[in-house]
Design a protein around this nucleic acid. Structure first.
Lengths: 333, 333
DNA sequence: CTGTTAGCGCCTTCAT
DNA sequence: ATGAAGGCGCTAACAG
């Protein structure tokens, strides 16, 4: 801590006012005459006073913090959500307190309880998969809660995201309309990534509707990565070489698939179509821009914060904000 | 906040002991008899008691928080450092409080002061470029401070990172030993990214020592990205086609350069060598693994936390931990 | 527009 | 091994 950090009392004494007056100036709250405000501000600067947030939080039963629970920092998607959160928070005086759950609801519960111990103004979490205890903590508290990424279930308070099922469905529809018929799928571990599974199911539904089927699928047993995409596509094609398009669980995997095609001399977009999900920059910088779906990750984070801070009280109505998605036609499918 | 959250008092009453006894059980501190501990723990579970951290922080003049200042979340390097920090923190009871500075020392200073307001146990920040005011806040407080990424200057307390100047120098040496002579350089904005500039200077020094020079260089005016690397290499080669190797400010840029070569039918590793910095997964998943240097970003975050928590007091001696780097020979240079 | 009073929930210090 | 008293720095609620 700061050594001998000055307190409200010190400032008040120097400015010749009471503590509460300084407090009001600091928080910019309540009516203060121009002259006292200036006197107080001078004293604050002179002493280099910085309010003690712990004291403030205790006295007002609430901290200017937003608890943020992310499943992972390895998947670039979540740093981007976090960037959106940070951007929206920048001018508000709130700060994010971050926890990483490793896609584990039990770990989420532990971290949640330690975040709640700070009496944050709101909690931002990911998806709808929580333990009963987490759900209870969140419901019995009255703080605002945003569940991000997904809109395919009923939120506790606010949901911000997109329908992954529909995104998968539209992927299928889009590719069918481009005359692809022999579909393959390359995925990663979806016990962890529930939303990848929803997209897969949407894809299957679209194929079904058109009387088509997945000719082959292969799932890497681990998190998504470029290397995993590369190796898993290789494995898929060695089993089933005559596919005309492969849908990947996300762009990381698809970019890896693209690299495999380069190595194996497969003409992407002609012999074989490739389709991703997310619309990452890397995919669009490829020699052939990746065909994919843009999920609006930055917007998800930003909008979540905006909605959460609109009202301190949880409204009667649950709110679902669909941030949508767009198909990026690209050149790989 | 939790509605009617139970307090120490409630637990104490239920367990038939005094508050301080409960406090001791919760913090696992001081002598407690087996039987009272169990009685108290039962009461805690029964009530679902969660300690109020704000009150704890106020009473003990210090919060179980680590302030973390990162320049950016867009550059994958920093989420990886953060991952290391999180991993090391996981079992300690400390939580990270994160601020993003956008490479702006003034913004850093503002965020620093608001982090310090929580009385954190330590501050982790990036590089050595701080405002005088920041430096004063950090010095006059007695809390531990780690400055990450870099070891090319004197730290306030602890530095954890690598010498970017030497990394640049070794890049030059390595490429010269592989008989490259006609060097080009593709960079990004180094007003923001000071360390990219150090690597550049190291490279120049190595060339100098060998009686060589940079035949051409081009810097993108903005942050590094795959697309920037792609376009900037194209620009460089259109001006100066007869280079035999190009060094990039980092892997993102180099991967973009690789993509340009694919599009322009330049045979990488034969007609033209490419060299990056960081050792990102994406570079190693390319059809030709990228020649680059592995910086140990995860380790930097992890070690910083370990060292910071070793002692609460700042030791007399400043500590510099060199996490080193390795040349990844790769296949592109 | 400014001040007084009374805690917020916990921990430190000292006693027993 | 346990407890009593007091205060950390701030703010809510009310007065004036």
């Amino acid at each position: 801590m700061l050594q001998d950090a000055p307190t409200l009392t010190d400032v008040a004494r120097l400015a010749g006012v009471s503590e509460i007056t300084v407090s009001r100036v600091v928080r910019n709250k309540g009516p203060i005459s121009r002259s006292t405000r200036e006197r107080v501000q001078a004293a604050i600067e002179k002493l280099g006073y910085v309010p003690n947030r712990a004291a403030g939080a205790l006295a007002s039963a609430g901290a200017p913090l937003i608890g943020v629970l992310l499943p992972s920092l390895s998947n670039i998607v979540f740093p981007e959500v976090l960037r959106g959160i940070h951007t929206a928070l920048a001018s508000t005086g709130y700060q994010p307190l971050i926890g990483v759950t490793d896609y584990d609801p039990v770990k989420e519960q532990e971290i949640l309880s330690s975040l709640l111990a700070w009496q944050p103004a709101a909690i931002i979490t990911t998806g709808f998969e929580h333990t009963d205890a987490s759900r209870r903590m969140l419901s019995s508290s009255k703080i605002r809660v945003a569940e991000l990424m997904d809109t395919d279930a009923e939120p506790i308070d606010i949901a911000v995201g997109l329908s992954h099922r529909r995104a998968g469905f539209d992927t299928g529809r889009h590719l069918i309309s481009r005359n692809y018929r022999r579909f393959g799928y390359v995925g990663h571990d979806w016990n962890a990534d529930h939303r990848a599974r929803l997209r897969y199911e949407g894809l299957r539904a679209a194929l079904d509707e058109a009387g088509l089927e997945l000719k082959a699928e292969e799932r890497f047993d681990g998190p998504s990565s470029t290397m995993a995409g590369r190796e898993t596509l290789a494995a898929l094609l060695s089993r089933k070489p005559d596919l005309d398009v492969v849908v990947f669980s996300n762009d990381d995997m698809a970019v890896g698939g693209f690299f495999h095609c380069l190595s194996a001399n497969i003409r992407v977009g002609q012999t074989l179509g490739l389709f991703g999900f997310n619309g990452l920059d890397i995919g669009q910088a490829l020699p052939l821009p990746l065909s994919t779906i843009r999920s609006n990750r930055f917007a998800i984070g930003r909008i979540a914060v905006e909605k959460l801070l609109e009202t301190g009280q949880r409204p009667a109505e649950k709110l679902i904000v669909d941030t949508g998605y767009e198909i990026i036609a690209g050149a790989t499918a």
